[in-house]
Design a protein around this nucleic acid. Structure first.
Lengths: 247, 247
DNA sequence: TTGACCAACTTGTATATACAAGTTAAAATA
DNA sequence: TATTTTAACTTGTATATACAAGTTGGTCAA
């Protein structure tokens, strides 16, 4: 019998490290769907930590839909294979594309600093004096231009933005270079009539409507710093969400 | 100065009671957006409990998007007014309709026990021997038939289902009468071509596409017991989601 | 054999303590 | 005055303990 012995690197928190370690084992298939995880007591011995720390890790797994905890019985692994597409949460296009393993390309159409007009002021919390980055990009997937991304970023937080950054990943730049702590977002989804701009930058393929995903992105201190409108061609749109019932 | 003194009824857990009490104060406007909540230490004194219990309540508020915790500073109330529409999560149509305060009606078109065909077996985890409730209902909002709901429930969990129950709220019946513990769900959203069934039961209004929300609903023990397909007219569809970034 | 009960497990809640780490504003210092 | 330091706050992490409550499987008695 082969015993899986995990070595945890303790750069991060203990409970986060354990969460990531258990998640890895689930992804690798060491723990299969419907398997029972070791009990909290056993895990606390394996990881040489307290039960409360184990419980923090397990609760994270539960919130994210990887396990189900059942009182008196234990924790069982859920069928996670179904959730591996655009699961709810804050995921950038680049992270998504890598997961999907598709041939993707980003085309930058606009990149400029603008004074916020009424439209921008409606969505981003800025005054007429502030400056705002406006970025318009289309996303090509397997040779088809499917998604039109319109980003508005508060210049106060982002002094510089280049063509290269926009072609790669703005998120990566913000988090890794500028060390901005992106914390949470509000998403709003609805269907809109297609516009001339959509026709100009996308392969609209004769559709008259388009799925709009509006994103309000906030930093750690709850300041709104970005508004993004993502316009998806009807036939390629897909959103997966995991939700727990709260009573 | 008026001091708000909350009286907590201790039927439920302490931390849940505190969560609900704080939430109520936020909804009532006793705590306004951008207000700072009392510190964890103060709250633990006010509620006569330990700091850990307060932290459980605050973490719930944070997960659900009501507050933002900032290390070293405190917890501030987020602008919750924006999230009060169909926020992500498991919410039944009846609960939703009550929140929106719209004139709604449910029309039951089909209600029968069927042997699962290939279509049902694809979505619900049943064998050919099992029996399944099939319910088809349309939802009328302000006089227009907007949503077509197709429910499939495993009969093993739901022995009886009546016309009245389906007109009211299946969820309410399941939870209150049958005492089923609905625990979590996976939602999948995409756009589909409109079907003859849609045209038959809905005011499709000339649209050629329809937004489909598929729901896989699970009980506490992680058993899949219901599959629901909710078909929304394009122009009336709207989905709001709050998501925290996990690193 | 059947059922009741119990012991040993499981997870859930609540509490107390200690220290780490980030923030803030007053006090001390140059 | 301007800057640095410090003290007093804040939230975050980790640990230990106790008991409640649900599950399971074996034991024992009818």
């Amino acid at each position: 019998m082969i015993q899986y012995k995990s070595v945890i690197v303790m750069k991060e928190n203990k409970f986060l490290a354990i969460y990531n370690d258990l998640l890895l084992q689930i992804r690798k298939g060491i723990f299969q769907p419907n398997d029972k995880l070791p009990s909290e007591h056993e895990l606390s011995q394996q990881y040489e930590t307290s039960r409360e720390t184990i419980r923090k890790a397990l609760n994270l797994l539960s919130e994210h839909g990887y396990i189900q905890k059942i009182k008196g019985k234990g924790s069982i692994v859920l069928d996670v294979g179904k959730y591996d597409f655009p699961v709810s949460g804050l995921v950038s296009f680049k992270e998504l594309a890598q997961k999907m393993k598709k041939r993707v390309r980003t085309i930058v159409h606009e990149l400029q600093v603008v004074k916020p007009d009424d439209y921008i002021r409606k969505y981003l919390d800025v005054t007429a004096k502030d400056e705002v980055w406006k970025v318009v990009r289309s996303r090509e997937i397997e040779g088809e231009k499917i998604i039109l991304d319109k980003d508005f970023l508060h210049r106060k937080f982002v002094p510089l933005l280049t063509h290269e950054i926009c072609e790669n990943s703005i998120y990566e730049y913000l988090e890794n270079e500028l060390k901005l702590k992106i914390s949470f977002a509000k998403k709003e989804m609805f269907v809109d009539k297609i516009t001339d701009e959509d026709r100009k930058y996308l392969d609209v393929d004769g559709y008259e409507h388009i799925v709009v995903v509006q994103n309000y992105v906030y930093l750690e201190d709850a300041s709104l710093f970005q508004f993004t409108e993502s316009r998806h061609r009807l036939d390629k749109f897909r959103f997966v969400d995991f939700a727990r019932r709260t009573h």
